[in-house]
Write a protein that binds this DNA or RNA. Structure first.
Length: 513
RNA sequence: GCGGAAGUAGCUCAAUUGGUAGAGCUCCAGCCUUCCAAGCUGGAGGUUGCGGGUUCGAGACCCGUCUUCCGCUCCA
């Protein structure tokens, strides 16, 4: 393909708009940044992807059930999850290098440097003395104590500043510590600003009585807070999973790359509850299962790779991403995390309710460990669309724009055309349509030459076109033209249903798993 | 928030040193009846992102403003 990568991505974005897949939100009012709407075809494709995921997770796994938790949740949920604190990053800019940093990271790195100094002192001393007692040395050596006092002072100040939301003080700490920008080397800092990464709104119609609640930044917490409800009412035994799809919201500073980063996006998550100690086995298992699910779409094995997290979040003991080869490079598509018992323990603590599982074999109760699979539906949509989008050079020199979507996911499965708009061909086409419409998403088109109609549906990604011609009136056969091969074959009208069944049904895709 | 780019018809783009907005495609109606986007006729569609200024006259020049896109940060 001779198209430059950045142009290729631009072409995909225009294609999405031109063919009713994705529109900018509120476009007639000049749009809203990082928010997009799904059009008539986009909504179908998205729904089909979601359905494929849901069936693969819930319907094909006896020990997984699905829920649909509300977007609004009790504010304490987000205290327990750590989002209230962790998602309030204080940011600071260096005026010379124009680089932005997280103020807390700058301070933490500074503290880490001092800790390094302590360690060096300890190492030096260890070489010097036999029977060296590190703990003793740390608690007595004057220089170490001085360093340690510095660290403690900084940490105390920083904690207080954050708790009291005093951003001036955070900046003052950076200045007092003489922290410099790693790029410019200068101490020319802006004031510290805080960016709310969670959207908040007010619940309660009377403003004085209203309380702040958040739009969920992830769907997972809706599963955790319902874990015991589902386990009890569903009589679930470990290991078991709870799946959920739904919107999540992040009030990011800016967002880029089309629907790859959006303020409002949809997640498809499954939290798998397991016996402590078995989590790594399940983690590995889900890595493979989820990769197999992606590969079943047939977009090319080389477009996927695992990316193991070296630096783990505080709640995880193993984590990786499945990355996809987007037009702008390999980027995260799905995350698989071993989240330990962190979330449930946090909710036990904040709610004061026991969230334990009674293991009848061991005759004891414990908080289960959790293995999470979390995929972005919009990202999945983009991965499928961008891998399917082709600008083909045909033998006759023409170009053809085609979406080679997995047939089972295509918004329209079959388009039906009368070859010409007379001689009763439209009637026959309509009657075929009326037979098939209960099983397949169809589209009828009688405008323009048939070649033009084929190309139009190539661009939408419709895998098959049925054309009714004069021969159809005589022998009750039609031509079926394939999007991918552009080949036609003649099929008897009464065999159409079975002809298409294994080609475009969700069932055929699920059977590959 | 900072830096850069850009806003003219549904889409892609024109409009000379400032002289009252035009083409192709799309769309709609009709003709033609044809198996891979290209036939014919007619038609619709724009307060040039918005507001102000300069000027006899602004799509163009100046100021402001809004929005989008790209980069920095964050992230599924």
């Amino acid at each position: 393909m001779s198209v430059k990568p950045e142009d290729f991505f631009k072409n995909i974005i225009s294609h999405c708009k031109e063919y009713g897949y994705i529109f900018q939100s509120s476009e007639i009012y000049d749009g809203l940044s990082a928010v997009y709407d799904y059009g008539q075809n986009g909504a179908e494709l998205k729904k089909n992807i979601r359905e494929y995921w849901w069936k693969a997770m819930v319907q094909l796994n006896e020990n997984i059930v699905g829920i649909d938790a509300a977007i609004f949740m009790h504010p304490t949920v987000w205290k327990a999850s750590g989002h209230v604190d962790a998602f309030n990053d204080p940011l600071i800019d260096n005026k010379d290098s124009k680089k932005r940093y997280r103020a807390d990271v700058l301070i933490e790195e500074h503290v880490a440097k001092i800790e390094d100094k302590i360690n060096k002192e300890v190492e030096k001393a260890a070489k010097r003395f036999e029977n060296f007692d590190a703990a003793m040395f740390k608690s007595t050596n004057a220089r170490v104590l001085e360093y340690q006092k510095k660290i403690d002072d900084i940490n105390t100040r920083f904690k207080t500043a954050l708790n009291e939301n005093k951003l001036d003080e955070v900046r003052q700490i950076i200045i007092d510590c003489e922290i410099v920008c790693p790029i410019s080397g200068s101490r020319n800092w802006t004031e510290v600003r805080q960016f709310n990464l969670m959207f908040s709104t007010a619940m309660g119609s009377v403003s004085e009585d209203a309380s702040t609640i958040y739009l969920r930044p992830e769907t997972a917490q809706g599963i955790f807070v319902n874990y015991l409800n589902v386990q009890k009412t569903g009589r679930m035994k470990l290991p078991f999973g709870i799946a959920q799809t739904g919107k999540a919201f992040r009030n990011e500073i800016v967002a880029r790359q089309f629907i790859f980063r959006m303020r409002e996006f949809e997640q498809m998550e499954m939290q798998f509850f397991v016996k402590p100690g078995t989590e790594m086995k399940h983690y590995e298992e889900w890595k493979q299962k989820r990769l197999a699910w992606h590969l079943s779409l047939g977009l090319g094995e080389n477009n996927y790779k695992f990316h193991d997290h070296l630096k783990l979040a505080h709640y995880a003991n193993a984590a990786c991403d499945i990355e996809f080869n987007f037009p702008f490079g390999f980027k995260e598509l799905e995350g698989i995390h071993s989240r330990t018992d962190f979330d449930l323990k946090q909710h036990e603590q904040f709610s004061g309710k026991k969230l334990q599982y009674f293991d009848i074999e061991q005759n004891e109760s414990y908080v289960p460990y959790v293995v999470e699979t979390s995929v972005g539906l919009d990202r999945l949509f983009l991965s499928i669309l961008s891998a399917s989008y082709k600008e083909e050079q045909l033998e006759n020199g023409e170009t053809r724009v085609v979406l080679n979507l997995p047939p089972a996911l295509a918004p329209i499965k079959i388009a039906i055309f009368p070859l010409v708009k007379k001689d009763g061909l439209p009637n026959l086409a309509e009657s075929i349509m009326n037979d098939l419409k209960f099983d397949y998403a169809l589209s009828y088109d009688e405008k323009d030459t048939v070649g033009k109609r084929y190309r139009r549906h190539d661009a939408i990604g419709t895998p098959y076109c049925i054309t009714v011609d004069h021969q159809s009136l005589e022998d009750k056969t039609v031509t079926v033209r394939s999007r991918d091969t552009m080949q036609q074959e003649r099929i008897s009208i009464d065999k159409l249903f079975t002809y298409f069944e294994d080609k475009v049904s969700m069932k055929s895709l699920l059977k590959k798993l």
